[in-house]
């Protein structure tokens, strides 16, 4: 009989199960993505997953950790999928590999592996690549430019020349450029690349609600993230409707839904107390809006998350909840 201590009853759960449910929750969004924008995303996910598992295995080996136990925990796959989803679907394969390697090797294992990373690994990958390869990271299949499936794959694997005309900036970027050029926008705003992005965002929302229902995440972070971003977007839009996009555009555009439910909710690098989560996520939402509207990058989620990651220890320290019986003392 092995020496063990109470409790002897344990809930049927594991890190692997948690990560699997996160992956499951991503599936609707990915399916919509593949159907509406093209199968490039599936190739990216495959590349990212293989790279992540290889990098994870190599690092575990170097760090002398049990391979099967950690390789099977699913955390590297979650990181891989998030990198793949946030990168342009037609990014060259090596860009995805560089991003994933950076996420797994540097952002995760050099900081101590699972549970130790102060920064969100997927967002580190995004930040590193957008700073290092801004052009490639900004090439998205243009609205209406239906890049044929085969063509997307050719681009990913470098089998065909990348034609500038076939890609374009994201709707967020396009809007920003238009507003900056003082063209203004007449009539309703371009509603998100033929609604494809909005549909994908709604799929992420559905997956996110699944995670809330499964108690993998709590309501705090998505609510504060979307609430803060929507509020700021709404105020500016009400003040100057011609100068700012409406809040729906912001919440369904770019990476807002993905960020609110899947990225800012990374427990390792995010705040953990209930009030801390609200502060952390509101900070991410506000910063993301500011960066995407006033900054130089197509979207601001990655930098917003990383900036707020820095604040997490402080936020957690100052938002410790009162314990049982001490609420009015």
């Amino acid at each position: 009989m092995e020496f063990s201590t109470s409790p002897y009853l344990l809930k049927d759960t594991s890190v692997r199960r948690v990560m699997t449910q996160v992956l499951l929750a991503l599936v609707p969004g990915i399916v919509a993505y593949a159907l509406l924008i093209g199968p490039g995303i599936l190739a990216q996910i495959a590349i990212a997953t293989l790279t992540a598992l290889a990098a994870e295995a190599a690092m575990l080996r170097l760090r002398d950790k049990p391979l099967a136990l950690f390789l099977g925990d699913g955390s590297a796959v979650v990181t891989a999928w998030l990198v793949a989803i946030t990168f342009p679907p037609v990014a060259p394969w090596w860009l995805t590999v560089v991003g994933v390697l950076f996420a797994i090797v540097v952002a995760k294992h050099l900081y101590g592996g699972l549970g130790q990373n102060p920064f969100n690994p997927a967002m580190i990958a995004f930040a590193v690549c957008i700073v290092s390869f801004p052009a490639l990271m900004s090439q998205w299949p243009g609205p209406g430019s239906h890049l044929a499936p085969a063509q997307q794959l050719d681009w990913i694997f470098g089998l065909a020349p990348r034609l500038d005309g076939m890609t374009s900036a994201t709707p967020l970027d396009a809007l920003k450029t238009a507003l900056r050029a003082d063209e203004g926008h007449s009539g309703p705003l371009p509603f998100l690349a033929g609604n494809a992005q909005a549909v994908i965002a709604l799929c992420y929302l559905a997956g996110g609600l699944f995670l809330v229902w499964r108690k993998i995440i709590t309501w705090h972070i998505p609510t504060a993230f979307l609430g803060a971003m929507g509020l700021l977007a709404g105020l500016l839009w009400l003040w100057q409707p011609a100068g700012f996009a409406n809040p729906v555009f912001h919440l369904l555009g770019g990476g807002a839904m993905l960020g609110a439910f899947f990225i800012a909710t990374d427990p390792v690098s995010g705040a953990t107390t209930p009030r801390g989560k609200l502060i952390f996520a509101a900070g991410v939402g506000l910063l993301a809006y500011i960066i995407r509207v006033f900054g130089g990058y197509p979207d601001g989620i990655a930098f917003a998350v990383l900036i707020m990651n820095i604040c997490v220890p402080l936020i957690d320290m100052y938002t410790q909840p009162k314990v049982f019986g001490m609420k009015d003392q």
Binding site: V15, L114, G115, T218, P267, G270, T272, T273, V323, F324
Partner: peptide, 23 residues
């Protein structure tokens, strides 16, 4: 027998079930 101990991923499940509202 209990599964091997993994690193804490700060998921906060423990804080959510603590009847004394500890962390």
């Amino acid at each position: 027998p209990k599964a091997p101990e993994m690193p804490c991923i700060r998921c906060g499940s423990c804080a959510q079930v603590c009847p004394h509202e500890l962390q």
